[in-house]
Simulated scan of single mutants.
Amino acid sequence: MRKDTIVIREIEAKDNPKITNAIRTVLIEMGVPKVGTAYEDSALDCMLETYSAPKKTYFVVESGNEIIGGAGISPLDNYEGNVCELQKMYFMPEARGKGLGTEMMNKCLNFARAAGFDQCYLETLPYMNDARKLYKRVGFESIDEPMGDTGHYSCTVWMLKDL
């Protein structure tokens, strides 16, 4: 698959079941717990609707008729402050190693800046090494404790970036 046949675009209604499947497939592949992570989020079944509110967006990675990844920005739940969260950034194996992670990060962080957020927060797992390398490369720094209340208590790596 060539990168020039892959498009990053905003989510559409037809993408809901495809991005849900892609995210859960990647989570299973990575051995992520099904509880305390994005796997059990009710938002997975209605991604377009979840990200249609102000200061929220979700982008998908499309190749042909397939959705092979995605990522979104949303205000950080249950937190006092002007902080957003990078959410549900997952890529199927065929999307990896093509620079799409960096491209997706740029799209998401540019949206966050334009929406007026001061910082971007994320949660991940310690063994998601490639993801953590990408986050560090774009300026995220590790922090000592979680922010807000995302419900993802199984995620034990927390990172923050000034926008």
Rank of each mutant, 00 (worst) to 15 (best):
S154H: 06
S142L: 15
Y121W: 02
M147V: 03
T150M: 01
N129K: 15
M159R: 09
R132G: 03
R132C: 02
V138F: 00
Q119D: 14
C155Q: 15
F140R: 08
R137M: 10
T156E: 15
A131W: 12
M147T: 06
D118L: 00
Y153K: 10
V138W: 00
D149P: 06
D162C: 08
Y135H: 09
M128L: 14
K161H: 03
K161L: 05
S142M: 13
G148V: 01
R132P: 00
H152P: 02
Y127T: 13
V157G: 13
H152L: 03
D162F: 03
F117M: 00
L160P: 05
M159C: 07
S154M: 05
T156D: 15
P126V: 01
P126A: 07
L122K: 02
P126W: 00
Y153I: 01
D162S: 13
L134K: 07
A131F: 08
D144Y: 11
S142K: 13
L163S: 07
T156V: 04
D130Q: 14
P126L: 02
Y121A: 01
H152T: 05
G148Q: 08
L163T: 02
L160V: 07
P146G: 07
V138T: 04
L163K: 08
L163C: 08
M159P: 04
Y127A: 11
D149G: 05
G139L: 05
Q119W: 01
D162M: 09
G148W: 01
S154Y: 03
D149I: 00
V138E: 03
R137Q: 12
K136Y: 09
E123N: 08
E123D: 12
F117P: 00
A131H: 12
M159D: 15
Y121I: 01
G148T: 02
E123L: 01
M159Y: 13
I143L: 11
N129Q: 12
V157W: 11
K136T: 11
C120R: 02
K133I: 09
A131R: 13
C120F: 00
V157N: 15
K161A: 04
C155M: 12
C155W: 07
Y135C: 02
W158R: 01
Y153Q: 11
Y127E: 15
S142P: 06
Y153G: 10
R132I: 08
Y153D: 14
D162L: 08
E145P: 11
I143V: 11
M147A: 06
G148Y: 01
T156Q: 14
C155G: 11
C155F: 05
T124I: 00
F117S: 01
E123I: 00
C120E: 09
R137Y: 09
H152S: 09
D130W: 12
E123Y: 07
P146T: 03
P126I: 00
H152C: 07
I143M: 10
D130T: 12
H152V: 00
D162A: 10
D144Q: 13
W158H: 14
P126R: 11
D162Q: 14
D118R: 02
A131P: 02
T124M: 04
C155A: 14
Y135S: 03
E145S: 14
P146L: 01
L160R: 06
T156H: 14
M128S: 11
S154G: 10
T124V: 00
L134M: 09
P126T: 07
C155N: 13
C120Y: 00
V138P: 03
S142N: 15
L160S: 08
S142V: 10
T156R: 14
M147I: 05
L163F: 04
P126G: 08
